[in-house]
């Protein structure tokens, strides 16, 4: 598995480009703009850039027929899929540190409440993990070419979720959530736990996809 992690890191490094400096620009701009809004959006941007690095690794693997080569190597399907999930999590953890440092700095220098910061970090992380949980099995089943489709599916699901919240949850409950400032990070943390569970399920689904794909050959 260490070999696969090394490979993914090398491929991710190759995929790095100037576009990944975008969050740094966003950080600088946020200092002169609206820090609260930037604090929220930056976390999401950073995490999604991390995801795009992971998918560039998927694309590189596909370009060089790695899905063929792996079966000729002494690797188990669980190692192949597990290493990719682990790589994704390592990348997210590293960027989480960056995000936390930035958010703490924002909170320190500007008048932004701590609960909002927590809610932002937990929420954006949960959102990113959910995205991975949905996209990974689709990529393993249909290849990276279907990643855009997977992204659309994710966005539709998020919109449906938002619509359901507005439609079915009483207005009083939403008002209560917004009135108690510590409820938001708690709800975000709950979402994060749910996303982690989904990611775990996604790992097993991805594993099945990989094994089925091989059996189909």
């Amino acid at each position: 598995m260490l070999g696969l992690l090394r490979k993914d890191m090398l491929l991710a490094r190759k995929a790095l480009s100037w576009v990944y400096l975008f969050p740094v620009v966003l950080m600088i701009v946020s200092l002169f703009g609206a820090p609260a809004i930037m604090a929220m959006s930056l976390a999401i941007v950073i995490f999604f850039l991390a995801n795009s690095l992971v998918y560039s690794v998927f694309e590189a693997d596909s370009k060089y027929w790695w899905e063929n080569t792996i079966w000729s190597l002494p690797l188990r399907a669980s190692q192949v899929v597990g290493a990719r999930f682990l790589f994704s999590l390592i990348l997210l953890a590293a960027l989480l540190l960056v995000v936390i440092v930035f958010e703490v700095a924002i909170a320190f220098f500007f008048d932004i409440s701590a609960p909002l910061i927590f809610a932002t970090v937990f929420g954006s992380l949960a959102s990113t993990l959910m995205y991975s949980a949905i996209v990974f099995p689709i990529v393993y089943r249909y290849g990276p070419a279907k990643m855009q489709l997977a992204t659309i599916i994710y966005i539709v699901l998020v919109l449906l979720f938002g619509f359901s919240v507005m439609k079915f949850i009483p207005t009083d409950a939403i008002s209560m959530l917004l009135s108690d400032i510590w409820l938001m990070p708690v709800v975000s943390l709950g979402a994060l736990v749910f996303a982690v569970v989904c990611l775990l399920v996604s790992y097993f689904v991805s594993l099945k996809m990989v094994e089925k794909e091989h059996a189909r050959r």
């Binding site: 070999g3 060089y64 790695w66 190597l73 002494p74």
Partner: peptide, 29 residues
Amino acid sequence: MQDVGFVMDCADFHGNLTLNEIRYYTSKI
């Protein structure tokens, strides 16, 4: 497959990496 070595007609490993980089990860496989 630890006992098997291969060179196929198509690319076996990532062409956007150097030989040394490929060694870096295959050495752990």
